[in-house]
Design a protein around this nucleic acid. Sequence first.
DNA 1: GTATGGATGGACT
DNA 2: GTCCATCCATACT
Length: 196
Amino acid sequence: MIAPISRRQTQRRQVELFSSPSDAAARALIGWTLSVDGVGGRIVETEAYHRADPASHSFAGPTRRNAVMFGAVGHVYVYRSYGLHWCLNLVCGDGPGSAVLIRALEPTLGLDLMSARRGVDDLSRLCSGPGKLCQALTVTQAHNGLRIDAPPFALEPGADVQVVAGPRIGISKAVETPWRFGEAGSPFLSRPFPTT
DNA sequence: GTATGGATGGACT
DNA sequence: GTCCATCCATACT
């Protein structure tokens, strides 16, 4: 059993993470534990976006919808997708307009609550997609702009894991930029990574 | 003012 | 594999 790291250590690692370029941050986030009101799990899949990226919401400059992306790092940007689902991003990067989309979690905290919210028992389908994990953690527009290092959110570093990269999902521009990251072999991904 | 399309998920064939 | 539910920022007219 590994001793829990100190709060100070956690803060130091968060600051380092938030200020990294979004692709490095997206890769580094794999293995961290994210929770909302004590419910959540290990991050196993992310995608990076940044200001000069045609696939990014921030590409066209600041708007009311994406304003959080141009604000302070360490805050969450929540947006509605296809009029139906919510997607959770962590603002982080070496310049304004960068963020990391949290795409999948390995459920570890509050399993019963997440199952009930999702109406699904299968752990591998509980948080295996950006819209699913928001439903499981009850993340909505109301969370847009909140800090990820303060309640109801919590973000804790985890052990290093083997990370694989691939093309991002569901975008029509910059399709080949390999800025989707995931834990190698995890059964909790939204989709498998292409085998290279 | 109207048109459009997207960082999706689930139900269905 | 296909289809559809249904919101909102943006790009037009």
